[in-house]
Structures are given as C-alpha cells and as structure tokens.
Design a protein around this nucleic acid. Structure first.
Length: 291
RNA sequence: CUGCGUUACCU
C-alpha cells in the first residue's frame, strides 16, 4: 500500500491525470492517504467540482489533511467564503490548517481578514510570520512588514530573501542591496535569484546579468529560475549572444532541462534578433508541444 | 505514503 501511495503521489506531482486515475483504480486497496492524494491532485489542477464532490460524499472519511486540502483548493481559486465554511466545519485544527486559511486570505489580498485569523491562532510558528511578512511586503505595506520582521522570534534565510524581494518590489534597490550584503545567513540560490530580479525589476538588466556571472564565481549552483530570469532579461534587452550562451550553459554545465518557458523565451530572443529560421528550427526541435 | 512560507516566465 505504501508503494502504491508513493506511486500515486509521484504521478499527482507530475500532474498526469490519466496515470493518476489509472493507478488509483488499479490499486489493490486504498486508505485515507490514497484518497487524500487524489483529493490533493484535484485541488492542484483546480478542479473544484471534484473537490466539492469529495466534501459532500465523505469518501471514505476525512482527516485533518483532507479538510485542509479542501480549504487550500477553494482559497487558491479565490472562493474564500467556501474555504472558510470548510475551515469552520473542521472538528479540530492544527498549525497547518490555520496556516492554510491564513494563506488564503493573505494571497488574495485580504490582509485585514488574514490579520484577524492571525490573532485567533493558538500558536504562531515561523512559517506564519513568514507568510504574514511576505503578504505585507508584496502589497507594499512596508511599515507593517517591517514590524513583523522585527517582532519575529527567529529569522531564517527565507525571511531575509522576502525582505530583499519586498524592497525590490517597492523600488528600493538600495535597501535590497543592503539586505543582500548584510544578511547573516548564508546566501542561497533563491537569494541570488531574488537579487538578480531586483536589478532587472528596477531597470538595471545589465547589472542583473553581471550578477549572474558573479553567482557562478561564488560557487552557488544556478537553477531553472536563475536561467529563466536571465533569459527574460536578455530578451528585453536584446542580447542574443548572452541569451544563447546561457541557454547552452544551463544544459551543458548545470545539467538542467530547459522547460517550455525557457524555450519560449529563447525563441523570443532569436525572433527579436531577426533569426527567424533559427527560431523556427528551435520550435521544431524542442521536446515540448508548442503553444 | 498525503495537507502550510521566499525568487523567474505566462496569466
């Protein structure tokens, strides 16, 4: 059963509907976890009708994870009243349940409601504070964000990365740079990606690209997001040679598989540079279906 | 074996 559940879970992660259904019907037996994986899968692909069916049919029975998944599903689609009613129906709520309800409000910009949920929560862990910080920063409430930041019981790398992104989003590149250089935690790939984006967002695309080359010198491993950021910058600025170099680099030196988005951006770079034949060739040779 | 936090593109 554990093996079947793992298999089901990996297909659910890969979002392949046919495989998920196939495995689910072929399993010799199922437990609550199997049902939760299936439920989570429908939540992920945004099939709210299926999620509602689950809620009303109660097959086979729910635990906290099932209900929490439903709250998340409705929140992600902006159906907060429906999410709230599932949340209110829960016989008990752990940290994750509270967090998901809180995330629902904050991600949809209902910061007042989020704050109310925050005040009702029996316990506050670092994840909740982090989400709160992120929400305030994202919506430009820098004073509130600063207050949360200062009152946090502890600050890990994620918290510092949010601070950099927050300052960048309100156009304060100086503070973003200050956070980046004064961070007490060890900088990770996300920190670098965030800083590259900070330059790009504030009109310094070339600084962003320069930063990318520094990252490699520092021995940090760039990931798919790093290359997406760089390729996007190259596309906006019209840097064909650098774009091509990065596109090769990600495969040859870093063993990363370019996603459909990477290909789309590379095709965009080639087209803008007038390399229409090469752009067409890339479309025909890529391992993704063109959109 | 299943449910929460930060960075890119598209929306």
């Amino acid at each position: 059963l554990l093996c079947w559940n793992s298999l089901l879970s990996s297909y659910a992660q890969a979002e392949s509907i046919l495989k998920v259904r196939d495995v689910f019907v072929r399993m010799p037996c199922r437990n609550i976890v199997s049902w939760n994986v299936l439920l989570h899968f429908y939540a992920r692909i945004g099939d709210l009708e299926r999620v509602r069916e689950f809620f009303h049919s109660r097959i086979p029975e729910f635990d906290m994870a099932s209900l929490t998944t439903m709250v998340a599903a409705f929140s992600q689609k902006g159906h907060l009243e429906e999410a709230r009613s599932v949340f209110d129906s829960m016989p008990e709520r752990d940290v994750v349940a509270w967090a998901v309800m809180f995330n629902g409000y904050s991600h949809n910009g209902y910061l007042e409601d989020a704050k109310r949920v925050f005040d009702l929560m029996p316990r506050h862990d670092i994840l909740i504070h982090t989400t709160m910080l992120s929400a305030y920063a994202q919506y430009g409430y820098m004073l509130e964000a600063r207050l949360v930041f200062e009152r946090m019981p502890s600050r890990d790398i994620v918290v510092w990365n949010i601070a950099i992104a927050g300052y960048s989003q309100v156009g304060n590149l100086t503070f973003a740079k200050k956070m980046f250089s004064e961070m007490p935690e060890h900088l990770d790939t996300v920190s670098w990606n965030t800083m590259i984006t900070a330059y790009a967002q504030n009109g310094h695309l070339n600084h962003g690209i320069a930063h990318f080359f520094m990252l490699q010198v520092e021995g940090i491993a760039p990931d798919e997001v790093t290359f997406m950021t760089i390729l996007t910058a190259c596309s906006r600025i019209g840097m064909l040679a650098t774009g091509l170099e990065c596109f090769m680099l990600m495969q040859r030196d870093h063993g990363l598989e370019p996603s459909k988005e990477h290909f789309n951006t590379m095709i965009d770079i080639l087209s803008r540079a007038g390399e229409l034949q090469n752009a067409k060739d890339l479309i025909n040779s890529m391992p993704h279906s063109p959109n």
